[in-house]
């Protein structure tokens, strides 16, 4: 009996009213033309390369029409982690009549959130995306290995973050999106590494001019097939 009531409550609460529709965003990490799989080998400048970690924050999701914001997601913070399939895919509930041409989001975490203390959910500092020794979120984390790296063990680690001017490293990204129910956003890690000199710059774990420059590069690897 209890479970019946429970089901009834579920139905009445959970069935979305017809005035809304659901759109899904899927992040699809790739290495150039290949789907990116952690631990698998790809080719970079004639050498093998493996990716062990790819995690980043997507926040402040909004929809744009002719340059104007027509919708914003409330409490919009998503930690996307290639090691967690479910984090690559999430829905947005929109008014069904809404019209838009572009998706807008921030790669990383805004500065106000940065100075507001301990947060929960995807922003919980125990998610491994928070610097311990100096307050601040890591907006984008990419780790792996390749003989191209001159570091011990040939590893490379890019932890991009920093919220204080002039080196604030969260980046705004705008992508034109199709009129479909699912948007697939490619994240081309190969492109990021193709433009990075692993011999010279293989480890970055603090805010500053380099983190800021690499954040520009990270923002440029996001694209959406507009079909």
């Amino acid at each position: 009996m209890q479970s019946l009531i429970f089901l009834w409550i579920c139905r009445s609460v959970a069935v979305p009213p017809a005035a809304e529709k659901e759109i899904h965003i899927r992040f699809r990490p790739v290495f150039q033309e290949q789907t990116l799989v952690l631990g698998q080998s790809y080719e970079l400048k004639g050498q093998p390369v493996r990716i062990e970690t790819l995690r980043f924050y997507v926040s402040q999701i909004a929809l744009i029409r002719k340059g104007k914001t027509v919708w914003q997601e409330a409490n919009s913070y998503h930690l996307v982690d290639l090691a967690e399939d479910t984090s690559l895919f999430f829905g947005l509930t929109l008014p069904s009549a809404i019209k838009y041409d572009s998706l807008h989001f921030t790669l990383g975490i805004d500065s106000l959130t940065h100075v507001s203390g301990a947060m929960g959910g995807d922003l919980d500092p125990s998610k491994g995306m928070y610097w311990a020794w100096q307050s601040g979120y890591i907006n984008f984390k990419l780790e792996g290995s390749s003989p191209l790296s001159t570091a011990r063990g040939h590893g490379f680690q890019y932890h991009l973050g920093g919220y204080m001017p002039p080196y604030a490293s969260a980046r705004s990204i705008s992508l034109r999106v199709p009129k479909a129910e699912q948007w697939t956003i490619r994240v081309n890690v190969g492109d990021f590494l193709a433009h990075t000199d692993l011999a010279e710059a293989h480890t970055l774990m603090s805010p500053g001019a380099r983190a800021s420059a690499l954040s520009d590069r990270a923002a440029a690897i996001f694209s959406c097939d507009e079909k």
Binding site: V115, A118, Y130, W131, S135
Partner: peptide, 10 residues
């Protein structure tokens, strides 16, 4: 280095 008491403990 820490901008808030909450996160100092990290």
């Amino acid at each position: 280095a820490a901008n808030h008491l909450d996160v100092q403990a990290l």
